[in-house]
Amino acid sequence: MTLEISMLEEVEARRCAALMAGDAGALEAMLAADLVHIHLDGRVDDKTGYMAGFREQYLFRDVVRGALNIRTWGDSAVMVGPLTQRLTLRKSGEEIAVRAITTQTWQRSGGEWLLTTCHNAPVAS
Rank of each mutant, 00 (worst) to 15 (best):
A121F: 11
V123S: 07
R43C: 15
D62R: 00
G93S: 12
S109Y: 05
R14Y: 11
G74I: 12
A18I: 06
F54T: 08
R65H: 11
S125R: 12
W113V: 11
F54P: 03
E56Y: 02
G42A: 15
C16Y: 02
F54Q: 04
D62Y: 02
L3T: 15
T103V: 07
A26Y: 00
G74T: 09
R65Y: 00
S109K: 09
E95L: 08
L83K: 03
R15N: 10
Y50D: 13
R43L: 15
L27P: 00
A26C: 10
M7L: 13
N120P: 06
V36L: 12
L115C: 01
V78K: 08
D46W: 03
G49F: 14
L3H: 10
Q85R: 03
L19V: 04
G66F: 08
F54L: 13
Q85F: 05
D23F: 04
W113L: 10
G110W: 08
S109P: 04
E9W: 02
G53M: 10
P122I: 12
Q107V: 12
G110Q: 07
V80S: 07
S125P: 14
Y50A: 13
L83N: 04
T88N: 06
T103F: 10
M79K: 01
P122Y: 07
L87S: 09
L87K: 06
L8E: 05
K91W: 06
I96V: 15
H39V: 10
T88F: 03
G42F: 12
A13V: 08
D46A: 12
M30K: 05
H119F: 14
D62L: 00
A26M: 01
R14M: 02
I38A: 14
L3E: 14
G22D: 06
E94W: 03
F60G: 03
L19Q: 01
P122L: 07
W106S: 01
A97S: 11
T72E: 10
L40R: 07
D45K: 02
F60P: 07
L59M: 11
V11S: 06
T117N: 02
Q85T: 02
A13W: 00
E56S: 06
E95C: 04
Q107H: 13
V11Q: 02
L115G: 00
N69S: 09
F60R: 07
A121T: 15
L27M: 01
A33Q: 08
I101F: 09
T116L: 11
T116Y: 05
A124S: 14
S92N: 06
A124I: 15
A21V: 02
T102C: 02
R43E: 15
E12V: 08
G22L: 01
N69C: 01
R71H: 00
A32S: 13
V123E: 13
G22I: 10
R61T: 03
G66T: 08
G93C: 12
